[in-house]
Nucleic acid binder design. Structure first.
Length: 702
DNA sequence: ATTCCTTCACGCGAG
DNA sequence: GTGAAGGAAT
């Protein structure tokens, strides 16, 4: 397939700032990859001058793969291509001394950060009514928006500012950065050291950014600084697919692009090449419910295709079984059809379990994406903590975790934490004999462990990542009798691949354990280990992870109020809009067939919950959908040929049709108690008394 | 000092 | 359902 005129035009405009607003399936990645190839092949731009940034590891890998088909490996290796975090983490490792950090710094994940906050809350007496998780979130918000100290005090509170300050200090002591620090410190670096900024401005003369709608303020500032000299910034985005607001993504970056870059040229890509006309129209229909959007008309020359199927399942088991049966018969009917063209999407990772069970039952090969469960496994965590402390002896979280496993006594650990508030924990353990508070036995254990780690540290300087990792695994198996070698096989195999790959690329400096850990945390998508992507398997993943991908058949599961849209989004209009964009992303993954499922009952949090269908199902116009097994009248039947009023634009009166977030669609039968209570007959749940002061009823039709 | 047991809170997404 | 936390029992 060649490029269309619009795409061609975009590729040939090399200099100056460019914003491309690209709808789903309009060949966005194609434009970026062709452009990079064009820059190198036709214009003769030095690939080492090119910086290409993506948001997720998966997108980075995808882009790399696609470019590799157009240019030589040598040229590809010279391009700086990766996620924001990986790219700037690399830069920070090179330049860390400017900030007083060591290059072997640890990256704290959310769990680590939370533990640090917990310790702080115990250590100091602050008046703050927030959970560690909430605090971490707010710290993240401050960092992503580059709030100054005084602004933090103003926007949050004095006690919060104090916690923030101690948190920063502790991370510094541990020679650790959290993910947000990677952006924050890159900004510090560029702001406070003009020579460093200049160096990178000269290196990265051409900057390309995918999924620009997902960038946050801190990222935007980095890019503005980096590009201020050459002004060659090329960004591609779709506001309708902005789904990372929770980590600071800001659509304003797209809306204000022409303000940030005054000579910006703006292009639009609105032709969809991916999906059937039905799916394109249905997606347009869905997204039109969002008030906050750049209006665009996505269109396609593709055939109408099949109508969207909706399956109303009785339970999560029924839902999973339906999906498994459907896949089974599709493959059976059409022998040439492949598993890898099918995706099952869900809102939350935990929904995957039951689906897996039924796929296994039907012998359907599948692959689950999303590394969360892998990193949460305690033996893997334990191993990674050893890796980390060997690389960075100041990594307090690792030391405490490991110590916790060796010293089971909580009081002892508490004492250690107390000491760590004042002194570097590593030095405390090193000189443990000086501390009277511990018993002889405890001291012996601590000393022994300390020496083991020291030994590994020396070894790690000469051995490659795989060899040292094997040593540590054997050590761990000795230490914890309930661990099994098979628990570690997967990660060991991947360390082996990593080591081999580095040798092949002759990057022996990255061949170390430290190289691998960096790689694991910010570079490599753990899902892509083992080169399994060439295998013919059904893909299971969250909607978030599916962005940028496409499949012939897409199942969107769990379309229930409180799940998709998620429970915490329901009471906020702007959060609902983000959920709707998420649904839009899910729907636009489908090339040929989209199947939406929801359940009446689902096991969640150990309890059986009763659900009503997602509002997104109701929003789809009747002409796009076919409800497989539901007799209930669809809202679009009610609305046919009638004017649609999406907002609460009137008074609740007898006879009008309303929408309630929990009960769905219903008709107002009468009003009581001076119009404070409405008796509504809901289609799904029957008559209910609704207290109007507490419950919002959205008027669908007068 | 250590293990065992009950209770309680929590619950989304990614790097 | 899970993991953390704290109390009870050994």
């Amino acid at each position: 397939m060649s490029l269309n005129r619009d795409q061609e035009n975009i590729i040939k405009n090399i200099n100056g700032p460019i914003l491309v607003i690209a709808g789903a399936g309009s060949g966005k990645t194609r434009v970026i990859t062709y452009r990079i190839a064009h820059m190198i092949k036709e214009i003769g731009i030095d690939p080492s001058k090119i910086l290409a940034l993506t948001f997720t590891k998966k997108a980075a890998r995808e882009m790399k793969e696609r470019i590799s088909k157009m240019i030589s490996i040598d040229e590809l290796e010279k391009i700086t291509l990766g996620t924001f975090h990986s790219t700037f983490s690399r830069i920070l490792r090179k330049e860390s001394h400017w900030l007083g950090y060591n290059p072997n710094y640890t990256i704290y994940d959310q769990q680590d950060s939370e533990n640090v906050i917990k310790k702080i809350l115990k250590d100091i007496n602050v008046d703050i009514n927030k959970t560690p998780r909430e605090i971490i979130r707010e710290i993240s918000e401050c960092k992503n928006n580059l709030y100054s100290k005084s602004l933090i005090k103003k926007k949050k509170s004095d006690s919060f500012a104090k916690i923030y300050e101690i948190y920063t200090k502790r991370c510094f002591q541990s020679n650790a950065l959290d993910f947000d620090d990677i952006l924050l410190y890159t900004n510090h670096l560029f702001l406070n050291f003009p020579n460093i900024l200049k160096k990178y401005q000269e290196k990265f003369q051409y900057i390309l950014i995918d999924e620009y709608q997902d960038t946050n303020f801190a990222q935007n500032v980095i890019i503005k600084n980096l590009s201020s000299k050459n002004k060659n910034v090329f960004v591609v985005g779709d506001d309708a697919q902005s789904i990372y607001a929770f980590r600071g993504a800001n659509i304003k970056n797209i809306l204000n692009f022409h303000v940030d870059y005054s000579e910006a040229k703006i292009f639009r890509l609105e032709q969809n090449y991916r999906s059937t006309n039905h799916i394109v129209q249905a997606s347009n229909n869905i997204i039109s419910f969002n008030k906050n959007q750049i209006t665009k008309k996505i269109w396609t020359k593709n055939e109408n295709g099949e109508i969207i199927k909706i399956y109303s399942a009785l339970s999560d088991k029924d839902e999973a079984e339906y999906i498994a049966n459907y896949i089974f018969s599709v493959i059976k009917k059409n022998k040439s059809f492949q598993y890898k063209n099918i995706a099952i999407l869900y809102r939350t990772n935990k929904q995957s379990y039951i689906i897996e069970y039924y796929l296994k039952k039907k012998n359907i090969p599948y692959k689950i994406y999303g590394s969360i469960s892998f990193f949460k496994r305690k033996e893997i965590r334990h191993l990674l903590y050893y890796f980390r402390v060997i690389i960075n002896p100041n990594d307090e979280e690792s030391i405490l975790y490991i110590t916790n496993k060796i010293i089971k006594n909580k009081n002892t650990v508490k004492q250690l934490i107390k000491l760590s508030n004042k002194k570097n924990i590593y030095d405390v353990i090193k000189k443990i004999d000086n501390y009277e508070i511990f018993t002889k036995k405890t001291k012996e254990k601590l000393k022994k462990n300390f020496l083991e780690i020291e030994k590994f540290r020396i070894k790690s300087k000469i051995l490659d990542a795989y060899t040292i990792a094997k040593h540590i695994v054997y050590f761990l198996l000795e230490l914890e009798k309930n661990y099994h070698y098979t628990d570690f096989q997967y990660i060991l195999r991947n360390i082996f691949y990593y080591t081999e790959e580095q040798k092949k690329l002759k990057k022996s400096e990255d061949n170390s354990l430290s190289g691998f850990v960096q790689y694991l945390y910010v570079e490599k998508d753990i899902d892509e280990f083992n080169n399994e992507n060439y295998e013919d398997k059904v893909s299971l993943m969250t909607v978030h992870l599916s962005k940028g991908l496409e499949f012939s058949i897409v199942f969107i599961t769990g379309l229930e109020e409180n799940l998709f849209p998620s429970r915490s989004s329901i009471s906020y209009q702007y959060k609902i809009e983000e959920e709707r964009r998420l649904f839009y992303v899910a729907l636009t993954r489908a090339q040929k067939i989209a199947i939406l499922t929801y359940t009446k009952y689902r096991f969640l949090w150990g309890k059986k919950t009763k659900n009503i269908p997602s509002r997104f199902i109701n929003e789809l116009h009747k002409k796009f959908i076919h409800i497989e097994n539901e007799k209930v009248k669809h809202i679009s039947t009610l609305l046919e040929n009638k004017k649609f009023l999406p907002e609460n634009s009137g008074v609740i009166k007898k006879g009008i049709i309303v929408f309630h977030k929990n009960f769905g669609i219903g008709t107002v039968i009468k009003l009581e108690n001076f119009n404070k209570i409405a008796i509504v007959n809901f289609m799904k749940v029957g008559k209910k008394r609704i207290l109007l002061q507490l419950n919002k009823l959205i008027i669908y039709r007068k």
